[in-house]
Design a protein around this nucleic acid. Structure first.
Lengths: 149, 149
DNA sequence: TTTTCTGCAAACGGTTTGCATCGCT
DNA sequence: AGCGATGCAAACCGTTTGCAGAAAA
């Protein structure tokens, strides 16, 4: 089963863009891929702290720059919370899916629920809009956090 | 037809909470209601600049404090964009709806599209989650901006 | 008169940038 | 060798906070 949350595949995707395979980028991608496999998401700062355990001199700026790169390559999804917080999680490029996020531990599950395409377009057309994108985010409490409460 | 984007009604709602009817709050609510009627959304800073034209000594902090108040009263919706920007727009309290936002001019239209409740709960349950909320945001280009392009 | 609200200015926190240097290729 | 990427620290920018004074009730 192909998960896509695989360090090598992600680095290859970067290489294809002419980006260099550097030590900080490898460490960051490894962490992102690991978390992707566990279905865990993270903040920029969390990623920095985690990566520093293995590569202590990776700078904060590099983390932001790499997150930006990965996001625009479609390897990372950005989730914006209503309170303005931003979190990220590894993404299978090209797959159409949305997210279900735990309010407590921020575990993220990809879900296939979506509004049917024709309905989306219909609503947009009625408002005189040309649709460019959409997002569906569900929030709740995962089994583990539910049990602990 | 009741739009709800009405200065008096909003101030009454605040009064019901024991909040005082002050000059800055009146000016802010008037602007928010006016924009609500036009279907326009705004940033905190935009609201500050607009209000200052009529009430030049309203402070920035008051704008943030009032936005926070209105949001928690359900009179204002916060829309988080993928790039981290936050915008607000007047909301009819209690109505279940989502948003269609113009990528260019940020005009916001309320839409009734939604994923059916049972489907939402179903997906959540399958993932072991207890659902607490959800959001659906559509993005696109409104008729006017489409024409200008 | 009491309490809430306000403006100001300083603090804050996350993100971005400028720059000299480092290290892929 | 050449140019992209990096770390550092300073700058940034939107937001929040502490506080003394102003204004609702």
């Amino acid at each position: 089963m192909e998960t896509g949350f695989n360090e090598g595949a992600m680095l290859q995707a970067m290489e294809r863009e002419g980006l260099r395979r550097t030590r900080p980028r490898q460490a960051l991608v490894a962490q992102v891929a690991a978390w992707g496999r566990e279905g865990v998401d993270f903040t920029a700062d969390g990623l920095w702290r985690a990566v520093r355990r293995q590569a202590p001199d990776v700078g904060r700026a590099t983390v932001f720059r790499t997150i930006e790169t990965l996001t625009s390559l479609g390897l990372l999804d950005r989730i914006s919370f209503a309170d303005g917080a931003e979190r990220y999680h590894a993404s299978v490029p090209g797959a159409h899916h949305h997210h279900l996020t735990c309010d407590i531990c921020h575990r993220v599950v990809n879900i296939e629920v979506c509004v049917p395409d024709d309905k989306l377009r219909d609503v947009a057309r009625r408002a005189g809009f040309t649709l460019s994108g959409h997002q569906v985010e569900l929030f709740g409490r995962c089994a583990r956090c539910q049990a602990q409460a």
